[in-house]
Design a binder for these strands. Structure first.
Lengths: 250, 250
DNA sequence: AAGTGGTCTAGACCACAAT
DNA sequence: TTGTGGTCTAGACCACTTA
């Protein structure tokens, strides 16, 4: 009577309208996809205001909360913009979001089917160069670990990492001879958020030697900084050998 | 009595517990952040099951739906994994998600403060090479547009794009002399989803000439394919000059 | 069989911004 | 002032999975 888990039949019955909820997908997903379709088809034009949540709830024969869930999803994706009182508009020039997973390097390699290999190059407890130290916002002791990850015995990526020992003192005793710092940190030092920069650069001497490429050859560089609350946990520079591609979904 | 919009005072009162909802943030956000803190602090350990939604709702003095909203957000971020009946576990080796905006190239340049420039190189209506045509999954007519975007009169990115004219016939008459295909498509040809690959490559002859760099120099390449439903709208290859960095948030 | 998260409802109050 | 989305509640049924 009042709508079950899926709510589909009840909605349609209660609304006495044509059944648009025929799929097994949840109602909010169906509504979201229908909204996407209307935007793509031009039924709802760029910059125009679309019907209110209440109106859509009536149209689809569901409750306002279900419509809100669908619209929130579209807003998160940047397809629509919502304002209290102002209603929901189709984004004029939508700033779409791209998303991608950040897997463990070992799993990234395993996913290609290749055998995984790992070799630590060095660990250091020297003071960090200013360029690195600046990013740690005045953290205390730092340590550095450099290592190469192999795919099918060929160098895949060079990992050059600084770790905040004040925040993760156990790292000083980890060694990273068998387990990479990448993996160790993911398991032992959770972070709350981070940022990542990607660029194409000329391989320097170390990168060239580590990856078995010529100096000056293009390398795909990922610089990742992760934070626990407001403190930097680690800064990593990952230099990928030629052929590497990072994927994002839009 | 039954909880207003923010629900904060009511929750605390009703629960008769200490006030943990002191901020102005919505309750679900507060709960989410507290959960993040507990995970980071090790209160909730990797791989362990955390309290059920109902239990957390009791603890925080709110309704189950509010806890669910917070947990859904963490699950979307990959920090926890949820199973019906199995409960919610802290991800063992969480596959974190990185997200980034996909701005218009013009806006990307404007954001740096540099003056924006644009020059169309060519438009073609020749049959696409097999490598490109394959990605269009047997679409009919295609057209190609190549152009350079400038930042402060220096080449910033080379845009080499194929457009599905069957889906977007108006593109054939657009010209793209003043407005870039990038911009035109965003405004006129909405897409439902897409994918993007990023890599570091050696500049070929065209890239070198267009960007004013040496052949073989590293270029940051973005290959973006967008779809309307299941049909490909456009495939673009964006080759960025040295110094370009793409940013993602984690 | 039982307990979990997934979803939905109907109602409510609020903050915000357009009028 | 008014109407919109943002949030919250209390309750419910269901699907899934584990025990």
């Amino acid at each position: 009577m009042t709508g079950g888990a899926t709510g589909r039949p009840t909605m349609a019955e209660a609304a006495g309208r044509r059944l648009i909820f025929e799929s097994d997908a949840p109602a909010w997903r169906t509504i979201r996809d229908e909204a996407r379709r209307r935007i793509a088809a031009g039924d709802w034009r760029r910059g125009a205001t679309i019907p209110t949540e209440a109106a859509l709830a009536r149209e689809f024969g569901c409750s306002r909360g279900t419509v809100a869930r669908a619209m929130r999803d579209l807003a998160d994706a940047g397809l629509v913009e919502r304002r209290k009182r102002g209603g929901t508009r189709v984004s004029d020039a939508p700033v779409r979001q791209a998303r991608g997973a950040i897997p463990l390097i070992r799993e990234e390699i395993a996913a290609t089917g290749a055998a995984y290999g790992y070799a630590r190059l060095l660990t250091q407890h020297l003071p960090a160069p200013d360029a690195v130290a600046a990013r740690f916002r005045g953290a205390g002791r730092l340590m550095r670990v450099a290592a190469v990850h192999f795919a099918a015995e060929r160098p895949f990526v060079l990992e050059d990492r600084w770790i905040n020992l004040t925040l993760v003192p156990a790292a000083a005793r980890a060694g990273f001879k068998e387990e990479s710092a990448n993996e160790w940190l993911v398991r032992r030092a959770p972070f709350t958020h981070g940022e990542q920069w990607m660029s194409a650069e000329r391989a320097d001497v170390v990168e060239a030697r580590s990856l078995g490429i010529r100096e000056g050859a293009p390398v795909f560089v990922v610089e990742r900084t992760t934070f626990a609350a407001e403190e930097v946990v680690t800064v990593a520079r990952l230099s990928y050998a030629a052929g590497y591609r990072a994927r994002l979904e839009i």
